[in-house]
Design a binder for these strands. Structure first.
Lengths: 164, 164
DNA sequence: GCCAATGCGTCAACATTACTGCCATAATCG
DNA sequence: CGATTATGGCAGTAATGTTGACGCATTGGC
């Protein structure tokens, strides 16, 4: 009458499947950030500096407000990190032409060099994972990650540099 | 002789493709952690507490050393977080039977309840992203994320609970 | 039984990254 | 002119991480 095997319980499988996804995200992010963190530590900088350098490099001339919207931190937190990077000569500000209140941000050559150095390892890592998984897998990876982003943020996230 | 169209430069596309992957990872992780962070803040806890509660819930009876190996933080950092959780009654310790030096960790009922509350939103989010992307995409998602993990950590990461 | 190594905890000091709240300046807009 | 916007600065606080040193109980090899 009863099947002696513990037949695959769909609820259990689902739970297990979801937890595996959660864990993969944790482990991947952990290892993904470890490399640049090391380089940053040598320079007395932290992960927050990398994020700022990355996105300013990606969106040259962006105002502070746009950076705040991406990072989702307070302006006070950003202000300190940004101030450090400006004083250290990685980022420079220019007054906005349309709105003179704005401080438009861009990397200096020194900043661009650091950006390349920091992101190089991450690019290599992503490239290796893409190569190993194949084009279809990459497509799925992007689909799922996009679905994980808050709906209201998806367009902004995919806009990336000056693509959108 | 020359193709007048700026033919898709494979190097550019690759760079763009990789950067998009990097950004998706950032945005997904940002939004993925925002929800539990709010709940934790109400309790005077932080993301580190969630990680500990999560993995102890996943691996009941795990020793401290295993947790250190997963989280990749120093025992001093863990000790503080773990101490808080134990004093607050979310986690309890039992001496190891095989090795009496070990402190085997497990969630109390109170801890298990908090774990469910914290992870519920994340599970829902992952479930929604999985549903929206489809089974093939989920497979690709897992493949790529696995490839992003340090090779030496992949087996451990996939071992999850007591699956491996 | 001695002794080194292991597993865990703790104290001290410090850095980074985040937060809230408040105030200031300057420019834009209505 | 007055309200809003974009930005900067200061003060205080907290979470999370680090290194270094030490203690204590237990284990395991000799």
């Amino acid at each position: 009458m009863n099947d002696p095997r513990p037949v695959a319980n769909p609820l259990f499988l689902r739970e297990e499947e979801l937890r595996q996804g959660i864990e993969l995200l944790f482990f991947a992010y952990r290892d993904f950030t470890a490399e640049p963190d090391k380089i940053l530590a040598e320079l007395g900088l932290g992960r927050a500096h990398h994020r700022v350098i990355y996105f300013v490099g990606r969106n040259p001339g962006m105002p502070v407000s746009a950076l705040l919207d991406i990072l989702k931190i307070t302006k006070q937190s950003l202000s300190r990190v940004l101030g450090t990077l400006i004083r250290a000569g990685f980022i420079q500000q220019k007054a906005g032409t349309r709105d003179a209140r704005q401080r438009l941000l861009e990397l200096t050559p020194k900043g661009a060099a650091l950006e390349r150095r920091l992101t190089e390892g991450q690019r290599r890592r992503v490239a290796a994972a893409y190569r190993g998984a194949g084009a279809d897998a990459v497509d799925g990876f992007r689909k799922v990650l996009t679905g994980l982003i808050d709906e209201s943020e998806r367009l902004k996230a995919l806009a990336g540099g000056s693509r959108g």
